[in-house]
Design a protein around this nucleic acid. Sequence first.
DNA 1: CCGATGTCAGATCCACTGAAATGA
DNA 2: CTCATTTCAGTGTATCTGACATCG
Lengths: 146, 146
Amino acid sequence: MDATPPTLLDLSTYLLSKTGKTARERLATRLAAHDLRLWHMAVLAALADFGPHAQRDLAARLGIDSSDLVRVIDDLAAADRVERTRDTTDRRRVQVTLTPAGRTTLADLQTEARIVQADLLAPLTPAEQAQLHALLLRVHLSADRP
Amino acid sequence: MDATPPTLLDLSTYLLSKTGKTARERLATRLAAHDLRLWHMAVLAALADFGPHAQRDLAARLGIDSSDLVRVIDDLAAADRVERTRDTTDRRRVQVTLTPAGRTTLADLQTEARIVQADLLAPLTPAEQAQLHALLLRVHLSADRP
DNA sequence: CCGATGTCAGATCCACTGAAATGA
DNA sequence: CTCATTTCAGTGTATCTGACATCG
């Protein structure tokens, strides 16, 4: 009595949406143990990969509303994971920089993410997992720039 | 300045979550043109695939909260896409049945879903799309029963 | 026990404020 | 140089969704 309707299982759209939601929820649960949410991790990752950003640029990169980003950064700054500094040449801007503690936190979160991933993708062989990743990556890159 | 952090792109968890969200949003937009949302489609599909359900069983099958299902069925019943009838043997139960109009609607929604899917998966060859579908299906089936 | 109503928390979106830069 | 306009961080809020709690 609990099987999913085949009509839906036939749709890749449905499977993507559903497994995506599962992945999201499981990761969010893990991050909650660190008192963080998905956006916190995304911000830390962006700063680690691309260096300090003005808040506006960070919001544009991550596709988050800048008013919401303010609150995410409030949290991270309160825990000394990022640092806010006024831009000296344009005093409207605030540079956001990753702290060493933030870098450590990010590494922990990545470990959590890999645990979730290993668990979720357990039914696939490593080769299949890599295949899935490659396919998803291509879909993502094309969907992000239509 | 708008590239996604590689730290995130390395995580299948992230790609699943992100592309899943994209798929969901695009389909939801399409369904909104019919004044319907994703749960409406899921309910129609379940009724088409498995026949009439009591509301409680339908909620269990779809993994939706029964209080939310009530309102979804309210909408569908108001548009004559499903019909509510009291169970004669257990008068607490309400049987929900698909109407011919509901079946037609479902077919329309499936068409919409395939359009979204063709668009989203356009960067992949048909063989790759089938591969992605098969992999996602296995992940979904295992994730649904942990 | 089952369907139905009400409510609450989280996320996203949108409008706005005040300070600071830009340019006519 | 002045004033209007634009840009930026930050605040407040409306809306929508999903989870829960309770009622009949």
